[in-house]
Write a protein that binds this DNA or RNA. Structure first.
Lengths: 356, 356
DNA sequence: GCGAGGATTGTGAGCGGTCACAACGTGGGC
DNA sequence: GCCCACGTTGTGACCGCTCACAATCCTCGC
């Protein structure tokens, strides 16, 4: 197959007329026979402008195709209507969906949205500074360790809101933040499995945002609590990654253990990997083993067996985070940030009673 | 399950010291006992500054925590080092992966990345204007009709590069653009199925970027060409959407037709839906029907049956598109844009010989 | 020992807007 | 008929930085 990527520089040489420098308010003012300040008043909808003058200016604006220079506006007014999202990932479903919510909310509010990915190799402070240099606000997606670390380093004077895995234990978040009750959701999912007759539930973990605390995040915590409440000693967790491959590795080991009849996974990708490993090992789902995922990725209802999972309102979380940021930027316009929907357990084929 | 979303306004009242207006070059100049112009020279690495002076200025910069105001720099210099991506979607795998490539490339080059989603409801011109107002360049993801329409409306004076489904038939692209040879890839995939003994291949389409031309994009075209080359009359196509649900609908109908033994899908999500429909209809894959997807989404190798698909280098496409834009913005720095990898057919379990 | 020329530094102007204030009319109230 | 308030418009300064140019300092060669 000889199928190569292509590029085309396209177009012809420069068209005869030059780059045509954009018109400024002074150009408009000259064309309309008024002062630049009057033009400024018109484009800002200032009330005290004579109707006839306004019309003349508007006509000149149309004629010259004037658009207010956003950079100059920002410099002179100090207002920047922009948000930069700092995140370690943009493709994983949870992140992508959150980003989408943020984008929608910011677009609706007339804010420009920037995205800046942080990697472990990057200098966190440089990255944050670059984001803050735009002059607008910053939203940090702190679902993982990198994001959480970034959040901690945002200078106090930078307007900032965060999405976190869970509020830091013990202390109130240093920044306005939104989160979903992952712990409770994990507990509910685990209880559901126990109620189906499973003696225990194994957990395949996503990397936690806090390296320290029990080496686990709220999802693991909820799982553990549900087991303990049922008088079951939590078995060791597995999983080291976010993707299906990591789930597959973990699943391979779990598949060998005949005591494993129920597996909760930190996200749907992991669950898919686990499903695959169980399949390879000849263990049927849900007859032999039940599997529950987390997040409800768009395709999770279409794989076979379809995946029982916890639906998360990442979208709403993103919108809420934007609202929190906007409240800082736009102190007067106190719009209430929408409250995200609660996580819900979506029952599908991958879970069922023990010994069905 | 009472699991609600939470927000926290966090933090305490304003700390005693005021917002601490950021230091300007004049502040630094005063602290270092030089003129503001000298500070400007230092931060821009101008050669003709005495070593001792430079040190003094650097020290003042450190002491005051000075960071050059990006807005003022942009206004005064006219240089903006920023890209805004215009796209109709950020979550679907192809888009998300492209976006990721764009982000990486722009970050590596020190450009800020903005994202702006266009919807059918939006006024295209307003959206484009908003993107162009940032002063930087624009990259349009023209994989679909909305994106393609947006591309057509980008004013000539705005630096712009595009990702397209395929170059517009007949005319050279009006803008520098990158694309993959989807047509050839679809042809190869179709030929593969025919070589496995299938009498014909059915196609479940993604929405095309051009409403007009034969109502199909390059993927459909390649499929059709392969069939025609083999002397087979292309059966009617189906599919109206991008997601698994659309694939499921299309698959339900195809499943009823016993002549259907091979199905090519416009993307992996559709393929997943088709797989699901076949499963519900009791038709085995690949024994009864072969299915091939497109894009190679991360999870496609982990579903059961794992999906034969065409791997696309969206990542490389994104990087290449950025390179094309940068060449316009940074006329001197003529770095060669990386060439994306060619699409490759990835053979997995969902395809096999007829009557296996 | 002095002038040329390069290195180093400072000054003025301007990017394209905004803000604060002054300068015009006008009309109404006395 | 006069004064003041108000509606309307214009002027100056400034946001924080860059550019172009002028001014100063040094060093070298003759």
């Amino acid at each position: 197959m000889d199928v190569t990527g292509h590029t085309s520089s396209g177009g012809h040489g420069d068209p005869p007329q030059g780059p045509q420098k954009a018109a400024s308010i002074r150009d408009v003012a000259a064309a309309a026979g008024v002062s630049y300040q009057t033009v400024s008043r018109v484009i800002n909808g200032h009330p005290n402008v004579k109707e006839e003058t306004r019309k003349r200016v508007d006509a000149a604006i149309q004629a010259l195709g004037f658009r207010r220079n956003a950079t100059a506006f920002a410099l002179a007014s100090g207002v920047t209507r922009s948000v930069t999202v700092i995140t370690s990932n943009t493709v994983l479903y949870g992140y992508a969906a959150t980003l989408q919510g943020l984008e929608e909310a910011s677009r609706a509010a007339g804010y420009a949205l920037g995205v800046r990915v942080v990697t472990p190799e990057d200098d966190l402070d440089r990255t944050i500074a670059a984001a803050a240099d735009t002059g607008g606000g910053v939203v940090v997606i702190g679902f993982d360790a990198i994001g959480a670390a970034a959040l901690d380093r945002v200078p106090a004077h930078v307007p900032c809101a965060a999405l976190v895995e869970a509020p830091r234990p013990g202390r109130t978040p240093s920044r306005p933040a939104v989160w979903a009750d992952d712990r409770e959701a994990a507990r509910a999912a685990t209880e559901h499995l126990l109620s189906l007759g499973h003696k225990t539930v194994h957990y395949v973990a996503i990397p936690a945002s806090t390296g320290t605390r029990r080496l686990a995040g709220p999802r693991a915590e909820g799982w553990r609590q549900a087991l303990e409440a049922a008088g079951v000693a939590p078995p060791p967790t597995s999983g080291k990654g976010w993707d299906a491959q990591a789930g597959y590795e973990a699943g391979k080991k779990l598949a060998r253990n005949k005591d494993v009849t129920a597996i909760l996974c930190g996200n749907d990708d992991l669950a898919l990997g686990v499903l695959r490993a169980l399949h390879h090992a000849g263990r049927r789902v849900p007859e032999d083993v039940s599997v529950i995922g987390f997040d409800d990725a768009p395709h999770s209802g279409f794989v076979t067996p379809s995946l029982t999972t916890v639906r998360m309102d990442f979208h709403g979380l993103g919108r809420a985070a934007f609202g929190l940021l906007r409240a800082q930027l736009d102190t007067d316009q106190q719009e209430i940030a929408p409250v995200p929907a609660e996580p819900t357990l979506v029952l599908r084929e991958s879970s069922g009673p023990r010994d069905a």
